[in-house]
Design a protein around this nucleic acid. Sequence first.
RNA 1: GCCGAGGUGACAGAGUGGCCAAUGUGACCGCCUGCAGAGCGGUUUUCCGGGAGUUCGAAUCUUCCCCUCGGCACCA
Length: 478
Amino acid sequence: MALRVYNTLTREMEEFVPLHGKKVNMYVCGPTVYDHCHLGHARSYISFDIIRRYLSYRGYDVHYISNITDVDDKIINRAKETGEDPFDLSARFTCSFIEDMASLMVKKPDVQPTVTGHITEIVDAIKLLMLREFAYPTPEGNVYYDLTRSKEKIGILSHQTEEGLMEGSGARIDVEKDKKYPLDFVLWKSSAKGEPGWDSPWGRGRPGWHIECSAMSMKYGSQQLDIHGGGADLIFPHHEAEIHQSEGCTGKHPFSKYWLHNGFLTIDKEKMSKSLGNFFTIKQVLEEFPPEVIRFFILNTHYRNTIDFSKMHLEEAGRAYERIANTIINVRYAIENATEGDNDSGLPNEISEARDQFTISMDEDFNTREALANLFIFSRKVNAIISGSSPDRPALEAVLGFFSEIDEVLGVFGKDISGVTEGTSGELSDKDIDTMIQQREEARGAKDWKRSDAIRDELKEKGVIIEDGKEGLRWRRV
RNA sequence: GCCGAGGUGACAGAGUGGCCAAUGUGACCGCCUGCAGAGCGGUUUUCCGGGAGUUCGAAUCUUCCCCUCGGCACCA
């Protein structure tokens, strides 16, 4: 079976074949750090995190590059509003972003370049474009990309015609009067006094938004990428501009073989926006929901579809998540009571089938929803086998191993698999809990249900769940 | 105006020609349990926006219509 991906460039499902054997150069547009990241960012970066992890799982050698835009008009404008130094502001939100990604268990990119760290590369890229006559400077100190030099590529990714773009942009076209052609976009923008800027052959200025991604992806991803990803809102103009620039610099086509775009996240069916007041930062949501649940919620919809966020949907995702988490916990407890015997109860076959199903689902353009559906089926079978027969330890450990294996991709069940609970948050020590459990057992022995239940309630209040099972009592912190 | 995505049970959401449609949540019933939890089994489930067509066969292909959402130079 081959991995197939949906390529925005061709609008088709295509078999995934990297340019160079098993090596995959993958670039995903990172955030502009002018504020705390919101759920839409979470959606995007979790989606590409899964894609990256799955490619690794499939044996590809993935080189994952994701930038941070730390100089930009929005940052400058925000800094003007708050009176903060723009560099301080972007540094602050860069930290915030990195923190958020860590919270959401998004693996760190192999390279995470910043714009301010790559001004030289950016200036060099612009110089090269000038040399090849793909760019022109203006007396105002700006440099524009000359779209008339690569007109055939207009609309290559957004699948729009030049006329369509011209009409659509309407009144906004004439904003910059020094452009030669309305669709030309800025590569270098002159900086006013007091604004961040760097010296260049065209005067003091800063990079335009698009050129950074070309310069950095060329530096770290060789001249051609296998996968370029980002939110669907970046298709035009950002990603199209990258194609013009990068191919202008290298003369190589395609700049990226596959273009992958994630769908939007809406809030109560409306697009998230500050004016509507339905804007959630990752930090806000993390206050109410654990990161596992947020990830699970995002995995519950195919990455290209619109996903609707609401508390109700997240709570639902939380309950669904617990189903599989409980299976893992069940397996762990079963292992404690298992024998070394020779009764595998058919588990190895179930694991093998579940692994096949997982791969089949994920191979189809990273269909995480279907992968989870198959995991639910597997979970139910495992639960039934555990309560029905008594599988031996090796078989149970293989189940746990399988969960661990696919969690390399999904990244949601780590805590459940390891069984490591954060005891620090609880007010009770293990010893306290043991004492209380013993007291409850005594009460139960005397059939003093009132007292037994009171102790259970007290423990629950203090964050400890106890459950009576066939093989005795078990407890865990929440 | 141009471009795109989509309409599947109460809700969420897979499936893109052939087992009268996966899976989860909710609700209800049963088993288990002192009770609860977890789990298992079942019901809700004659769910594919509407019409026409192609086909032995359509949620899936063609065509027309209705509706929703998004992009179009700030955007994940």
